[in-house]
C-alpha cells in the first residue's frame, strides 16, 4: 500500500465522519423546524379560520373545512353597512387610544419617580403597586362597578376607561427600563438647567422609547380586545366597544358566527397598524447609543 493510498483512506474516513456529523446536525435542524412549523400552524389557524368563516355562508359555518365552498364578501358588506359597527369601532378606537396615551404618560411618570428619586416609603409604594398585579380582574369588577356607579360613570367612556388609565404592569415595566438610564444623563440635564419635569420629558423619556413602544402595543391590544369590563359597565349599545358589539351579533337561539368573524377580521386591522408603527421604534431603540462606545 502506498503512502498516497493511506492518505486517501484517511481523508475518506474524515469525510465520512464529517458527513455523519452533518447528518446529525441536519436531523436536529429538521426537528427544530418541525417544532417551529407546528407552533406557527397553531398560531395561524385561528386567524385562518376567522378569515375563512368570514367568507362563508351561514349554512356552511359549522363545516370545519378551511376553504369556503362558495366564498363571498357579503358578510363584509353587511357588517360595514350596519351603522352600529362604525360606532363600536370608533368607541374602541377612542378608548384604546386614550388609555394608551394615559398609560404611556402616567406609568412612565410613576416609574421614573420610583426609579430616580429617593424618598421615604419609595419601596413600600412600589411593592403596593406591584401587589395589585396579584388581584384578578374578576375580583376587581365589583368594586370598579360600585365606584362607577357612585361617580355616575356607568354607560360612559370614563366608566369603561378608568380602571385601565394606569396599570401596575406599566409602572413596573417603565421603572425597570428607567433603571437602564444612567444617572449621569439626569445630572447633566440638571446642570444644563432643566427642571425635574423637563428632565423626565426631554431627556429620560426619549431614552426609553423601546419600552414605550412595547407598553403602547400591550395597552392598545389589551384595551382593543377588552371584553368583560366594557360588557359590565355598558348597557347602551351605542357605547359598546367592538368585542362587546360583535358578541351581540346573535341571540340565545342563534349566533351569527360568520358576522362575528367578519367583524373580528376587520377589527384586527388597527392592531396590526399599531404593531407595525411601534415595532419600528423597538428596533430603532436597540441601536441607540449615547454612552461610552
Amino acid at each position: 500500500m502506498t503512502t498516497a493510498d493511506t492518505e486517501i483512506r484517511a481523508s475518506s474516513a474524515a469525510l465520512l465522519e464529517g458527513t455523519r456529523a452533518k447528518q446529525r446536525r441536519s436531523l436536529g435542524q429538521t426537528i427544530r423546524w418541525l417544532i417551529l412549523f407546528g407552533g406557527g400552524i397553531l398560531m395561524i389557524m385561528p386567524i385562518a379560520y376567522m378569515i375563512s368563516t368570514s367568507l362563508k355562508w351561514p349554512f356552511e359555518v359549522y363545516n370545519v373545512g378551511l376553504i369556503p365552498e362558495e366564498p363571498h364578501l357579503e358578510n363584509y358588506q353587511y357588517v360595514l353597512e350596519d351603522g352600529r359597527f362604525y360606532g363600536w369601532f370608533v368607541n374602541s378606537l377612542i378608548i384604546a387610544t386614550i388609555t394608551t396615551i394615559s398609560n404611556l404618560f402616567f406609568d412612565s411618570l410613576v416609574g421614573y419617580t420610583l426609579c430616580k428619586f429617593t424618598f421615604r416609603g419609595r419601596y413600600i409604594v412600589f411593592i403596593a403597586i406591584l401587589s395589585t398585579l396579584m388581584i384578578p380582574t374578576e375580583m376587581l369588577v365589583i368594586p370598579w362597578y360600585l365606584m362607577s356607579q357612585s361617580f355616575g360613570w356607568l354607560d360612559s367612556y370614563w366608566g369603561i376607561m378608568f380602571p385601565g388609565l394606569m396599570t401596575a404592569f406599566g409602572v413596573f415595566l417603565m421603572k425597570q427600563f428607567f433603571e437602564t438610564v444612567p444617572d449621569d444623563f439626569i445630572e447633566a440635564a440638571r446642570i444644563d438647567g432643566l427642571n425635574e419635569f423637563q428632565i423626565f420629558w426631554s431627556v429620560a423619556l426619549p431614552m426609553v422609547k423601546p419600552a414605550l413602544a412595547a407598553l403602547a402595543i400591550f395597552v392598545f391590544l389589551g384595551n382593543w380586545t377588552a371584553f368583560l369590563w366594557p360588557l359590565i359597565v355598558t348597557t347602551d349599545t351605542s357605547l359598546y366597544t367592538l368585542p362587546v358589539g360583535l358578541s351581540s351579533f346573535g341571540d340565545e337561539a342563534d349566533v351569527q358566527w360568520e358576522l362575528i368573524m367578519t367583524g373580528a377580521a376587520i377589527s384586527t386591522i388597527p392592531t396590526l397598524v399599531v404593531f407595525l408603527i411601534f415595532q419600528r421604534f423597538i428596533i430603532r431603540g436597540v441601536v441607540m447609543a449615547g454612552l461610552k462606545g
Binding site: 444612567p182 444623563f185 446642570i191 447609543a289 454612552l291
Partner: peptide, 28 residues
C-alpha cells in the same frame, strides 16, 4: 447646579443619544 455657573463633563460623557451634536451642545 444650574445657578452655580459651572459645567461638568461626565465619565460616561452623558451626551443625549436622541439628539444631534448641535442639539446636545445647544442644550447648555
Amino acid at each position: 447646579p444650574k445657578d452655580r455657573d459651572i459645567a461638568m463633563v461626565f465619565q460616561n460623557y452623558a451626551i443625549y443619544p436622541h439628539m444631534t451634536v448641535r442639539k446636545n451642545i445647544s442644550f447648555g
